Simulated assay, not measured.
Amino acid sequence: MISFVRVDDRIIHGQTVTRWALEYPCDGIIGVNDAAANNPVLKAAYKGAAPEKKVFVWTLEHFKESMDKVLASKTKYFLITKNPLDMKTILVDYGFKPSDIDRVIIGPCNDRPGAIKLGNNQSITPEEAQALEDITKAGYTVEFALLKDKSIGEWPQFRSRFDVK
């Protein structure tokens, strides 16, 4: 079962996970990112960021193979990807639909070349903007929030800054 869906370029970060767990109970975390899942050092670091939780760091392909088990599980997991593109793959392309989840929280997305700054530590590229548009069209509300009480708004507020279809 999924209790919370988030995009965070740090994937798993102890302070943020602790804070969001106050709002959305969880027993474990599933971080999905091909590079992290294939790097033993990164994988160990992410698992160490939340030692009191069950932590998994999976590739997109492994998530696809396991998503039905995740949905059927009684364990409450956070689903976190490093970027909006991976989240779009899971929610739109794979058709993953956690029950009772209709909101995707966009956390830190660092400034990068080609990215448009939306708020403090929240910048997205045009390609990521299209992914967020696709997630929205799939029925989700996309909200930009580093923490629960630090929201800068929802996707429609920023859509006009991008050429999305």
Rank of each mutant, 00 (worst) to 15 (best):
A50V: 13
I11A: 09
M67V: 00
G14Y: 12
N33L: 05
L85K: 07
V55L: 06
I116G: 06
A49I: 10
A44S: 14
A21V: 06
G95D: 10
P108N: 12
V57S: 10
Y24D: 10
D111N: 11
I90N: 01
S151N: 00
I116C: 05
I152T: 08
M87F: 05
Y94V: 01
K53W: 01
C109Q: 11
F96T: 05
I80T: 06
W58P: 00
M87Q: 00
L146C: 07
T136Y: 00
V70Y: 04
D149M: 10
G114L: 04
L22T: 06
D111Y: 09
P98W: 12
K117N: 11
G119W: 02
V57C: 09
S3P: 11
A36N: 09
N33Q: 07
G28W: 09
V164S: 02
N120L: 04
N38V: 08
A131V: 13
A50H: 13
G139F: 04
K165T: 07
W58L: 13
D100W: 08
D34T: 11
A115R: 15
H62Q: 10
A115K: 12
L71Q: 14
S66A: 10
K47F: 08
D93H: 11
E23V: 05
L118V: 04
R112D: 06
I29A: 08
W20D: 06
V70L: 08
A21T: 08
K97Q: 11
G14D: 12
N33H: 14
Q15L: 14
K82I: 13
F78S: 00
G28N: 08
A115P: 03
Y24V: 07
I90T: 01
L91I: 08
L146G: 13
L118N: 02
A138Y: 00
A131M: 08
I2N: 01
R112W: 07
R161M: 12
I90D: 02
T75H: 11
K137N: 12
D9A: 09
A35H: 14
I29E: 03
K137W: 06
S151Q: 00
L22V: 07
G31W: 11
V92Y: 02
I12F: 04
V104I: 10
A35S: 14
V7P: 01
E154H: 05
D27E: 11
D134K: 03
I11N: 05
K117W: 07
F144M: 03
A45E: 09
E128D: 12
I124M: 14
K97R: 15
R161H: 10
E154T: 07
D34N: 15
A44Q: 15
D102V: 06
E127N: 08
D102I: 06
V70H: 08
G119V: 02
R6V: 01
I30N: 04
E127F: 07
Y94K: 09
I12T: 11
S3L: 12
K53N: 02
E143G: 03
L60W: 02
W58S: 03
A44M: 13
Q130C: 00
P40G: 09
S66M: 15
N33A: 09
F56A: 14
V104K: 04
